[in-house]
Design a protein around this nucleic acid. Sequence first.
DNA 1: CACTTTACGATGCGAGTGCATTGTAATCGC
DNA 2: GCGATTACAATGCACTCGCATCGTAAAGTG
Lengths: 197, 197
Amino acid sequence: MPKIVDHEARRRHIADALLRIASREGLDAVSLREVAAEAGVSMGMVQHYFATKDQMLMFAMIQLNARIGERVATAMDAPSPRAFLRAAILELLPLDDERRSEARIGLAFLARSVVADEPADLLRQALPYVIGFYAEQIRAAQELGQVRADLDAGIEAVILYTMAQGLVNPALIGHLSPEEVVATVDYHLDRLFLTSG
Amino acid sequence: MPKIVDHEARRRHIADALLRIASREGLDAVSLREVAAEAGVSMGMVQHYFATKDQMLMFAMIQLNARIGERVATAMDAPSPRAFLRAAILELLPLDDERRSEARIGLAFLARSVVADEPADLLRQALPYVIGFYAEQIRAAQELGQVRADLDAGIEAVILYTMAQGLVNPALIGHLSPEEVVATVDYHLDRLFLTSG
DNA sequence: CACTTTACGATGCGAGTGCATTGTAATCGC
DNA sequence: GCGATTACAATGCACTCGCATCGTAAAGTG
């Protein structure tokens, strides 16, 4: 079996091209030919590595998810639950070009998950994970006396997540500036956390 | 000029068909032929009333917006700012089949607004209006002593809106039940309003 | 050196797309 | 009633799409 090439590396290369197109022109503009052109390869090669377009899409989305997940994981050594939550949320918001790009794709994927099963499954799997992390941090803060004990950590985590998701579009279309987005997040955290000190 | 037909009624009829398709299969599945078939008319007729597909899409979105706006307006005679806000927000969330349908389309439109100019313009125009309404209600509640005076009504309004938008997808893919969605909204309103009583 | 498997590149196909064009009833002002 | 305009219906066109097929060069294994 000839295996001169790195299979996974090729797949990532193609998926990267796909993500670039999706970011620029939306998920609708993603076609086998466009992806091949963007990746600088032939269309036959794209087909060689992905049996169907949907598989290619899902692979790219999982890769994007992983990329964001890694960045959030980097923020996990934050000095306090509040700092971690702040960092984790801001990581998802379109505050610079890279995150703008990711947020565009994420939003398109979110919309797609409403009519297609596979993206919906992926989201249904990822959501408890993300929101659960938030809830854990809030509970940790409660034990540290930094969040009122009578608040519901689970629901606060949901609100945190939904607020972040809801901020994406207004930020992307320019209704909220990056500064306003950050200010909104900080305002909300101020209301959630006790201003100790 | 022969005018045996009601021009606007025909346009609404076609737009309704478009919205049904968009709700069932997503915005991508909307084509001139599909819309014509769904509306029970010829493709030539669709073209007669809409010069381009984009115009048809925008018309349908504006119509959807107006439909939701009317329902929210009905809720405006609520007895208190809190009751109004609650009603206005729940009106946007996918709690029954009709609103599920609307939320699906709205989400697709939201994603489209990130890569297309016209939808983005529409949203940029509508957002200050909606959020402004929320802010007004919160300020009214502050004057009534139902919301702490030191809270920022403008930011609270943004958070209210973003939370609602962020709830749409988790609700649509079934990660949150309608009951959990309502509970989350009520929880947030509980935190925003003073439990005077 | 065969023989198989991998890794493509090239091409083609049927379906579907938005839109333009054409034809034709019907209905108005005159 | 006659020309002009409206309201469609039907068809065609150029294009794009995902995917299948075919051919082939390279690299391993025996």
